[in-house]
Computed example of a mutant assay.
Amino acid sequence: MRTVRVLTAALLAGAAALTVAGTAAADTPSASPGPTSSGKADSAPTEAGTSFRTATPLRPGQRATAGASTGDYLYWVLPVDAQQRVTVKATVTLPETASRHGAATWQLDVYDGLRRRQACTYGTQARAAAKEAPSVELSCTLRTVRAGAEPWANDPLPGSYYVRLTVLDLPEEDLGLPVRAAVEATVAETGGAHAVDGALAAPLVPATVTGSLREPEDGWSGGWWSDRWLWTAAGGVLGALAGIFGYSLTRGAGRPSRVPPGA
């Protein structure tokens, strides 16, 4: 039984070490954008593209701004990796009330590297702003990006994601009025709950943006850690403990009982 206790204590200590290591790895925040070759940190974009091909690169966590005319299509592009869930928020500062002729409906769309429009799981993707409204706010949270998918599926895959902001409906007289747009994208790590076997050979990053779109801080699918490691280690420890406990029971049951002297 002493051997059993020693083995049990060793296994529990190993499990605790794995748990601490896993928690530390999972809780480590992502590295902030590092300095560029000029020695300065990446600055947030102050303009937007007008098509997929001219989309302005945007890093997660940055707040991009742009001045435009009502009716323009505004495009940004950002990298999103597997097991990440992106939320895009946009604020449009509208023209002066005196220069407007009625309400306007604005919409925020997100497309993947294949230019497939991705559905929002929640958020206000389109909103009508009254004539007196000073601004309009929109948001879209996508499904968690998967490492791989079936050819027929429309699952979000690692690569570039395009953000498009535009007005859908407004009085014709209001076309061309100046507006100010602000867009911000945040990325949340979802962990091993969304991990799948297999992965893309390469992220969906079109050649038109490869030179300007930087990859995630730890590379494409570069994060080795997943909370599945904890579940696997815990399962192994519990299995070992169950085996040791069963062995101790069978060993104790197989011992012959001692007969008292003189019986």
Rank of each mutant, 00 (worst) to 15 (best):
R258G: 07
G159N: 00
V110E: 01
A48P: 00
R164Y: 10
A195C: 09
A48L: 05
P29D: 07
A263C: 08
T70E: 15
A64Q: 01
E137V: 14
A26Y: 13
Q125F: 06
T3G: 14
T186H: 07
W106T: 05
T19A: 08
A15S: 04
V6F: 14
V163H: 01
A10W: 01
C140Y: 03
L94K: 01
A41Q: 07
W76T: 04
A16W: 11
S226D: 12
T65V: 14
Y73N: 09
A17V: 12
Y247G: 13
A234S: 08
W225A: 08
D81C: 13
L94G: 01
A181I: 15
P35I: 08
T144M: 07
T166L: 03
A103Q: 14
G61D: 05
D112R: 04
L204K: 01
A188Q: 14
S212A: 13
S226R: 12
L138F: 02
F245R: 14
R180K: 11
A182E: 14
E137R: 13
R127I: 01
D109R: 00
W229Y: 15
A48Q: 02
A242M: 10
R116C: 04
G123A: 05
G49D: 05
R228L: 15
P216L: 04
L114D: 13
R59A: 03
T232M: 06
S135H: 14
V167L: 04
P216N: 03
R59N: 02
A17H: 10
G176V: 11
L18H: 11
G113V: 01
R164F: 11
V86E: 00
A201V: 10
A233F: 06
G262V: 01
A181S: 12
V205E: 03
L241Q: 04
L157Q: 05
L78Q: 05
S30M: 09
H101W: 12
T166C: 05
V187A: 14
A234V: 04
W225T: 12
A207L: 10
G34Q: 06
Y122L: 03
A147L: 13
V80R: 00
G192V: 06
M1N: 15
L78A: 06
T3L: 15
T19M: 04
F245A: 10
S221R: 09
G14E: 09
